[in-house]
Amino acid sequence: GLPEGWEMRFTVDGIPYFVDHNRRTTTYIDPRTG
């Protein structure tokens, strides 16, 4: 799974992105792969 505090969501286009609730940021880069 994802690191603690992270969540995976999808855009309206079906593109996955990642929400970091710890820092309240979003990124398209998987936190597991950097």
Rank of each mutant, 00 (worst) to 15 (best):
G1N: 13
G1T: 13
G1H: 12
L2T: 03
L2I: 07
P3G: 05
P3I: 03
E4A: 15
E4T: 10
E4G: 09
G5I: 04
G5Q: 05
G5H: 08
G5S: 06
W6P: 01
W6V: 07
W6Y: 07
W6G: 03
W6I: 06
E7A: 04
E7M: 03
E7D: 05
E7V: 08
E7L: 03
M8K: 06
M8V: 09
M8T: 04
M8E: 05
R9T: 05
F10D: 00
F10P: 00
T11F: 01
T11M: 02
T11R: 05
T11Q: 06
T11L: 03
V12D: 13
V12F: 11
V12E: 14
V12A: 14
V12N: 12
V12L: 12
D13I: 05
D13T: 13
D13R: 09
G14S: 04
G14R: 06
G14F: 02
I15Y: 08
I15A: 06
I15W: 11
I15Q: 09
P16S: 05
P16Y: 05
P16I: 10
P16T: 06
P16N: 05
Y17P: 02
Y17I: 11
Y17S: 04
F18G: 00
F18Q: 00
F18T: 00
V19F: 14
V19H: 05
V19N: 02
V19R: 02
D20N: 12
D20G: 01
D20Q: 06
H21Q: 10
H21E: 08
H21I: 13
N22T: 11
N22W: 07
R23F: 09
R23K: 13
R23G: 15
R23N: 15
R23E: 14
R24S: 13
R24I: 08
R24H: 15
R24D: 14
T25V: 14
T25I: 15
T25Q: 10
T26R: 09
T26Y: 15
T27K: 03
T27D: 07
T27A: 05
T27I: 11
Y28G: 10
Y28Q: 13
Y28S: 14
Y28A: 11
Y28F: 15
I29Q: 13
I29E: 15
I29R: 09
I29H: 12
I29S: 07
I29Y: 09
D30L: 00
D30G: 00
D30M: 00
P31N: 01
P31T: 02
R32V: 09
R32T: 06
R32K: 04
R32D: 07
T33A: 09
T33W: 12
T33Q: 13
T33P: 10
T33G: 12
T33S: 11
T33H: 09
G34I: 15
G34R: 08
